[in-house]
């Protein structure tokens, strides 16, 4: 047996070098080629649902899309026409309530994590809680808001829906804001402190303005997620066939419609008009969510430039 493992070349003047050539007959090359093909095909297949969803949305949703959808009220069974103006308004209001709760809370907690005491035990606990909330099932946010708001106030309401959504927004806002604050170069902070700024002045005049794009990106991503959530609204805001405002007053303590719940309610009915409306609402919802996402990404891209 030769000491050499390879079918090596003898030291003749013109050694045989065919074993150095590429060949698909070589088992390893063939295997490599086959595996690459499999992975490529699986990756393409993974994108099929995305294109299918988008196509269906534009095909079925776009078909019934009209201007009236945006200001009319949902139709009853067997009724023709109608729209989901109240659901769009409801979604906007509830996401607004959620943002009003989650953004200040998230940003201040992030300031604690990044500035006040980054390495304290409390900071570690807060980060852990943030991670727990990130993987928190959205339906349980609804269960919590049901117990904490609905049972307490005695009824389904936009506020309950907003509270449920705020729990889902909080971790995204908090963790991205912390990251954005940490991205601010140390030398900037040192410059401000070196000039005799108090911590608050340093944060207010240097840190927050510098990290604002990053924070806004997180907020937009959280808004996008919250706008599409259905499960936490099912039994907190419930649904309503009417406008949220009665005679000019916005009634935040009444059951409130939302696009997501409208899609859910109308998806399982046998009435053609309502099903078509569900598709149109899905198209509008996806466009809303994607817009928020794109804005968020555009902001973060500007930061990199």
């Amino acid at each position: 047996m030769s000491a050499n493992i390879h079918p090596s070349a003898p030291s003749t003047p013109t050694p045989d070098t065919r074993h150095l050539e590429k060949s698909l007959r070589n088992k390893q090359s063939l295997f490599s080629f086959a595996m690459s093909a499999v992975v490529g095909i699986l990756t393409l297949l993974a994108l099929v649902p995305l294109f299918s969803v988008v196509l269906m949305l534009f095909y079925r949703g776009g078909k019934s899309l009209s201007f009236a959808l945006f200001y009319e009220l949902p139709p009853g069974p067997m009724q023709e026409g109608g729209g989901f103006g109240n659901a769009i308004l409801g979604t906007v209001i509830m996401v607004g309530i959620a943002a009003a709760i989650a953004v200040p809370m998230g940003v201040l907690a992030a300031l604690f994590l990044a500035e006040t005491a980054p390495d304290s035990r409390l900071a570690k606990t807060v980060r852990f809680c943030g991670k727990v909330l990130t993987g928190f099932p959205s339906i349980l946010a609804g269960v919590f808001a049901y117990g904490a708001v609905v049972l307490l106030t005695g009824g389904f309401s936009a506020v309950a829906g907003g509270v449920a959504l705020s729990i889902l927004m909080l971790p995204t806002v908090m963790l991205t804001a912390e990251e954005a604050l940490r991205m601010v170069p140390r030398k900037m902070k040192e410059a401000a402190i070196g000039m005799g700024a108090t911590d608050f002045q340093c944060v207010w005049m240097v840190l927050l303005p510098t990290s604002l794009p990053g924070i806004l990106t997180g907020v937009m991503l959280a808004v996008a997620r919250a706008a599409g959530e259905t499960a936490p609204l099912l039994f907190t805001a419930l649904f309503s066939n009417y406008w949220i405002s009665a005679g000019g007053n916005v009634e935040l303590m009444q059951p409130t419609a939302s696009l997501a719940v409208l899609i859910y309610n109308f998806s399982g009915v046998p009435f053609q008009n309502q099903v078509e409306l569900a598709w149109a609402a899905a198209l509008v919802l996806v466009l809303l969510v994607l817009t928020a996402n794109l804005i968020g990404q555009a902001i973060s891209r500007r930061r990199i430039d």
């Binding site: 150095l20 070589n26 390893q28 090359s29």
Partner: peptide, 9 residues
């Protein structure tokens, strides 16, 4: 030539 075969030598 297969670069992998080259690296074996």
């Amino acid at each position: 030539i297969d670069p992998v075969a080259i690296r074996r030598h």
